[in-house]
Design a protein around this nucleic acid. Structure first.
Lengths: 126, 126, 126, 126
DNA sequence: GTGGTCTAGACCACG
DNA sequence: GTGGTCTAGACCACA
């Protein structure tokens, strides 16, 4: 499993990491019972502070997504814990889209243009 | 001209304000030569500190978008300063879309679903 | 006599005006007894506020350089009032040069380069 | 690294600080990767408010000259970002020289005299 | 009245 | 500990 982090991004490192782990699980790249890298390994690999990794693991454990066993390591506990109820899911998507559209409008890019761009990317991925 | 700000958003007030002003100009609601509200008026209206407004005006002036005349006020200088060259525009859009897709993936929402959502909103607006 | 003002300059209008009037007198373009434009004429010509012109005339009158006669107008009173004692003159020059060199250094331009540039301009003027 | 500030100067503190930092980088006293003092340290040292220092660092970061790592500190990112293209460099120098000559003329100091003064200073420095 | 600068001090995000 | 954001309020420069 490869996670990646952009140190020059304004998005906090911990948020980037949490996001990519959640995405990996949501996409099925990591399944129930799969082991994650140790805190130290991942910290070295991503060249970030081990505290930051530990904080993310702890956060995801609190959310019921990961589980940690002392002396063993951290693994995926419940991928379903990511799935939000449809209603909240919809609300989150709306919020994300709001932000995108606001930022796009600020540089003069309209909704149709955004859609066109995403459709292009959709084709590329196929 | 109406700008709006969400004090409960994690996005800094100054960033929200800058974004809405840029959007108003990009959309043609504010044109070259149009006056903006005074720093103090806008601060009162948005219930934020005058320094925060002043900071945004100063930033937009540095970007060549607004101009200030001492003791007079602030007005739109060059709407074109917002328009980026096509190449950079495309890059910005890609960056914004990347962010959206990363966040969406983290809660298990896929690209097609994002597109569907945006198309729905596009219809609503018509 | 032509004075000029740059409204987009960060230098205050009154300071620009005072400077050009002083320079015209120092250079001998305006001599003792010469009349200056009326406050209103100059204001219209330069497209600035009449108060600003009046303020400059008043300032120069206080300095003993101009004199105003009610119903008549403003004229040059004493060109010599501009000439500073050699010591202060030297100090002023040093201060001005300090500022120039500091600003030049900030964009990576060194003293010899500044001198070369001024010598070029000296030739052009001849 | 020593920066200095003159609180009695009419030039805004933040502008003085920005200028000296730029000069230090342009002169090679600070190189790529070098750490700058922390915001609070520098504020104490210069006896100015920490916000003022932070403002300067932020401005230089926006200019691409410095870079900030969250919770770590501020360092030089790209000294080349200061170097302007020759054309603009020339224009800047001309603007600075214009200002100097205008101010000098206003106290009756001519171009040759300015050049003589700068040559004197050039000798002193050797 | 306008905007510009600076301060003191709070609270937050981050590592 | 680092920097980032925001506030309240002072004082100045300018028209």
């Amino acid at each position: 499993m490869q996670f990646h982090i952009d140190a020059s991004s304004p998005v906090p490192l911990y948020a980037q990491l949490e996001r990519t782990i959640r995405a990996a699980i949501a996409a099925g790249h990591l399944r129930e019972g799969d082991r994650l890298p140790t805190v130290r390994h991942l910290a070295v690999e991503l060249r970030i502070n081990a505290n930051t990794v530990a904080r993310v693991y702890a956060e995801l454990e609190r959310a019921g997504i990961l589980t940690t066993q002392r002396g063993v390591g951290t693994s995926v506990r419940d991928p379903a814990a990511i799935a939000k109820p449809a209603r909240e899911r919809e609300r989150s998507l709306r919020t994300l889209a709001d932000r995108l559209l606001a930022d796009a409008a600020a540089i003069g890019i309209s909704l149709p243009e955004v859609i066109r761009h995403l459709q292009e990317r959709s084709k590329e991925t196929r």
